[in-house]
Simulated scan of single mutants.
Amino acid sequence: MASVYRALDDETRRLVLDELSARDGQTLFEICSVLAVRHGLSLTRQAISQHLGVLEAAGLVVTERRGRTKLHFFDPAPLAEIARRWPTDSPRNPP
């Protein structure tokens, strides 16, 4: 679980997850392009690839190869596990 928190601690990685949650199954080129166009980030492909590696190690991104193309998918399961850890069904202001 600590790797999930570390992965989410970076603004660029959160933007990558935002973009993958909006449109899953993107290539590295597509992710780099959307980050540059929508968010004004001019990072190298290598830098984005390293961010994707951190997200993948945390279980937040899974990849699939289709021929020579590597697609990236958002996996919300680690976030759901965090949410299950602290249930929110109790009252906010007990009497």
Rank of each mutant, 00 (worst) to 15 (best):
L71I: 02
A77R: 08
A2W: 14
V16I: 15
A77H: 08
A57K: 11
T88M: 08
H39T: 06
Q50V: 09
I48C: 01
G67N: 05
R68S: 11
L52Q: 02
W86I: 13
D24V: 06
C32M: 15
E81N: 07
L52P: 07
L28T: 02
T63E: 07
R92M: 08
A77Y: 08
A47Y: 15
D10N: 15
T12L: 11
Q46A: 14
V4K: 04
T12I: 13
H72F: 06
I48S: 01
A58I: 03
D24H: 08
V4N: 04
A57P: 07
I82Q: 09
R85Q: 12
W86E: 12
L20T: 01
P94F: 04
R6G: 08
A83Y: 13
I82F: 07
A57Y: 12
P91S: 03
Y5C: 09
T69L: 11
K70T: 14
V54Y: 13
P78Q: 00
I48Q: 04
E19F: 06
V16F: 05
P78H: 00
A22D: 14
V37W: 13
E11Q: 13
L28G: 00
R68D: 15
D89V: 10
E56A: 05
P95M: 00
A47F: 11
H39A: 07
R68T: 09
L20V: 01
P76Y: 01
T63G: 05
T27V: 00
R23D: 12
F74L: 06
H72C: 02
P78R: 00
E30G: 07
R65A: 10
A58M: 01
T63Q: 08
I82V: 12
R23S: 11
L20M: 02
V37T: 14
R45M: 10
V4I: 05
F74C: 05
D24L: 04
W86K: 11
K70P: 06
T27C: 02
A36T: 10
I48M: 03
P78K: 00
F29M: 11
R66A: 11
I82R: 07
L60G: 01
V34Q: 15
R92P: 10
L43P: 07
G40I: 06
H51N: 14
R45F: 07
A22C: 09
R13L: 00
M1T: 08
T88C: 08
E19N: 10
L17N: 04
L43M: 12
V61S: 00
A2H: 14
V62A: 12
A83T: 09
R85P: 07
S49Y: 09
L17A: 00
L60M: 01
T44K: 07
A36W: 14
A47I: 08
L28A: 01
A36I: 08
C32H: 14
L52S: 00
S49C: 09
L43N: 11
L17H: 04
D89F: 13
A80Y: 12
L43F: 13
R65Q: 10
A80Q: 09
Y5V: 10
D18R: 14
D75F: 04
G53S: 00
V34T: 15
A7M: 02
Q26A: 05
L52H: 02
D10L: 05
L8S: 03
L52D: 01
S42M: 12
Q50H: 11
L20Q: 03
D18Q: 15
S3V: 09
R85T: 10
G40E: 06
G59H: 02
H51V: 04
A58F: 03
R84N: 14
L20D: 03
